[in-house]
């Protein structure tokens, strides 16, 4: 339903950010985009959510070219502290975008409550974002996105600013919400474990300018589980396959365990 074809982006400064990227997101599917830091993943996401003009190629949602943010798409951004409005309560933050989509106030109220309880934030509606922990704030952002009832949910490194434990919780939250609503999800991350754990398919991007290196179908059973899924031998295979690609084709293939861990830490800490 979301199609990206030969997408190009060259900034007016002459910097080429994206070169000929093509992939699609099918219905009821989670697709993860991974790539090294600074690969232009965010640029790509902004291009295909209509926030940024592209220099060439096509982005289409259900066959319609995307030129501005579509009504059937919702976004969760990386930095919750910069994507929630500190002057509004949690409730109003979730309700604000709904006004243009759902005319009845009572209906809106129900949707807000349902979304908040879906992300486990019952009873926090009248709190302010800054009274909540980072993980809870990102839950609010997710609630805002799902209350909007999108057909495609795009997420830009949504868990990059939270600690490891919260991150695992939020990953599982996305999985359960997606299973319940059937929304398609496109998630950008630099964490390879996360990509493999969440995705039906992983799109691997090169460093700048971004090109698609490979698209990997992840055939791991659902529902997934942080411990069980991650201890499957298949998981490890996917993971090292993706990692090898992300580290770069030109590099030697004989990387030792030490460099592997080092590299992983590097990507994590960014």
């Amino acid at each position: 339903m979301l199609t990206v074809k030969n997408l190009n982006k060259v900034y007016s400064t002459g910097v080429e950010a994206i070169r000929d990227v093509s992939f699609d997101v099918r219905e009821n599917e989670i697709v993860c985009l991974v790539g090294p830091s600074g690969a232009g993943k965010t640029t790509l996401l902004r291009c295909l959510s209509g926030l940024l003009d592209r220099s060439g190629g096509l982005v289409a949602l259900d066959g319609q070219a995307v030129t501005e943010p579509p009504l059937r798409m919702a976004a969760v951004f990386q930095d919750y502290s910069r994507s929630l409005m500190p002057w509004y309560t949690v409730e109003r933050n979730v309700a604000l975008p709904l006004k243009n989509k759902f005319p009845s106030p009572a209906d809106r109220r129900d949707r807000v409550n349902a979304a908040l309880s879906a992300v486990g934030l019952d009873g926090f509606g009248s709190s302010y974002p800054w009274q909540l922990s980072g993980g809870m704030q990102q839950r609010v952002a997710i609630a805002r996105a799902i209350a909007y009832e999108p057909e495609v949910l795009v997420m830009d490194e949504p868990f990059a600013s939270v600690d490891a434990q919260t991150r695992a919780d939020l990953e599982d939250l996305v999985l359960s919400v997606q299973a319940k609503t059937g929304t398609s999800v496109l998630l950008v991350t630099h964490d390879i474990d996360e990509a493999v754990y969440l995705a039906d398919r992983v799109v691997i991007l090169s460093s700048r300018p971004s090109r698609v290196l490979d698209i990997v179908d992840v055939d791991l059973p659902r529902p997934r589980d942080q411990i069980e899924t991650k201890s499957l031998p298949r998981f490890a295979e996917y993971r090292s396959h993706v990692l090898r690609l992300v580290r770069g084709l030109g590099e030697a293939q004989d990387f030792s365990a030490a460099t592997l861990i080092h590299n992983e830490e590097k990507t994590r800490s960014v």
Binding site: S49, E68, A74, A75, S83, M85, W87, R144
Partner: peptide
């Protein structure tokens, strides 16, 4: 970030002014 949010959720000009720009 808030500009992105208000654009991606298609807030109207007026909504942006009243709910985002002025409070901020």
């Amino acid at each position: 970030g808030l500009e992105d949010v208000s654009r991606s959720f298609r807030l109207t000009r007026w909504q942006r002014a009243v709910s985002v720009q002025l409070p901020s």
